[in-house]
Design a protein around this nucleic acid. Sequence first.
DNA 1: GCAAAAATGTAGAACGCTACACGTAGAACA
DNA 2: TGTTCTACGTGTAGCGTTCTACATTTTTGC
Lengths: 337, 337
Amino acid sequence: MTKKAPARTPRITIREVASDAGVSVAAVSKVLRDAYGVSDALRAKVQASMDKLNYRPLASARGLRGRTYTLGLVFPDLRNPFFADIFAGVNSALERTRYQAMQGVSVSASSLVEAMIDRQMDGLVLIGPNETNERLNDIADRVPLVAIGHHDLTDARFDTVNNDDQLGGRLAVRHLCQNGHKKIAMLSLAAPVSTVINQRELGYRLEMTEQGLGGSINIVRAPQVLREVQLILRRLLEGKDRPDAIFCWTDLMAFEAISVAVELGLSIPEDVAIVGYDNTVFCEFSQNRLTSIDQSGEVLGLQATRLLIERIDGRSHSEHFVVTPRVVARASSAKAG
Amino acid sequence: MTKKAPARTPRITIREVASDAGVSVAAVSKVLRDAYGVSDALRAKVQASMDKLNYRPLASARGLRGRTYTLGLVFPDLRNPFFADIFAGVNSALERTRYQAMQGVSVSASSLVEAMIDRQMDGLVLIGPNETNERLNDIADRVPLVAIGHHDLTDARFDTVNNDDQLGGRLAVRHLCQNGHKKIAMLSLAAPVSTVINQRELGYRLEMTEQGLGGSINIVRAPQVLREVQLILRRLLEGKDRPDAIFCWTDLMAFEAISVAVELGLSIPEDVAIVGYDNTVFCEFSQNRLTSIDQSGEVLGLQATRLLIERIDGRSHSEHFVVTPRVVARASSAKAG
DNA sequence: GCAAAAATGTAGAACGCTACACGTAGAACA
DNA sequence: TGTTCTACGTGTAGCGTTCTACATTTTTGC
């Protein structure tokens, strides 16, 4: 079945560079890694040959001995534009380095993580990993690891970068209270897989209680399936006890909430105010004009990358970076009455 | 600066498997690649050892001699959820294979493509590449290549998978005509970088002409920048010659169009109908209820992957796969009057 | 039953790079 | 002038695979 592939233009190797520059292979390698013991003259000579031949080191070969200069990013999903922000942050951190990021997507990180380790990634960033600390430590024992959006720090042998999701939950409630809302419901995720959700729920609860609204705490949980979400929102908004505000655990759900509300003839924010989370581009975008909690994905990505490279360079104690969220107020939660 | 990294749990190598199974390294390699000349007994023995030791071949090492079983996907952008559909298609094509996809994002494919070649990807899928055929052929000479969303087939030494964008443009216009709209404008992209846009514009023009609306052909071009898009849309909708329908080159722009229209107090579809392109999940989603041209990203991804693997396996002539788009009608373009 | 053919397994040389261990030469020191 | 440093280059042994030869065993054909 497998025929011979057509002849491909062959690669320039370090050997050819060496012979072109009239030096040893080892010398070229030194220049490549800017290792100690290289004179300016030699560097220049080698550099010239590399440029001339358009030489590029082969990552797999490097990986066999040293590094591949490749970082792996594991996203849980590609549909949420919030992840694009994180990615942008990663890339800006990588700008002046020799590292390159490769991404993969998978709900259960496991198999993808293995694939990335097989491919000699120098380090991994897991975004919103749905994994136990035990499992994460297991990975961390094999490859430098940073988790974004993981709040369990006990015994962590990896770094974390987090938005303060608990504070985020609080801010949402506080903001809605300030704008005169009282019956604030929260739309959360069924089977809360991530510690992120737990923190947001906790923040919601705590702030509701502190605001003296403990009695009207109302967490509604929906799965990721669109139909289900719509159904549950409809039930919530048609019920006799309709909330006058909904805090949604992510912008995407918030858009859906707006959608269902409008469909039911309710006006926003007069009848029901909506607040989302992530402050994705789409908040600005559509008529949604959605108030949202900004967790600055770009900062998350940037810090995670910084920590990861530190770790690759040898740091072995764990660091945990926290970003403070903030409310970005838009029309969807404007002052009631 | 660079300290010694902490001791990592070492990898199981093919050598250890071989010694555990009491066979040669070559034998294990044969089993791994299911090459010719392996008895059932040997296979079983080796398989057992591999399972027992939890062995996983190292891609970089394989790459040095043969394949890495890694495919590279190059996306122009991560924000458009349409790309998630393509990705899903790729993954479903990969399901029962030993290949794994890694993604990268970059507007100008160039540097990312080089990085992927450096990392020994067995093949590349470029999505909406903003490159000349010359450049693409150049890449194709070095690595098996498939382009999704590239309409220039002259001399192509790579495969392409395309939605029939010209037909898509036609369908949009035809649909709007059938629903009684006449002054149909098209919102396109400034500096049309991709052949995709050209085809959609062409389809729009041709169908307008055939419908006898050649006189009201009106292509408005906006850059990718949100502010600009809003400005241009506002100008278009406030002008004395307001169109009664807008065909937008992508859903994201269509949402923006809806947004601006609503802001201006226009109702959709009575005052102005909107049609998008891509049929992203968000069409169903928000109150947008956006009519869109479906180009089935999943099929595109699946076919591209299929072609790519064929090419890796040795096919050298080019193939070009075309998917037929279809209109998915929703509220945003309902019958006028 | 014997030669030829087919099937099965093994040795060992790459693949392109890194990094350790040296060799050498000039500078600094006494 | 000899000796010790230091800076700079080089030789070469791997890293974990694949894959071409080749050696050995088993099967087949007559």
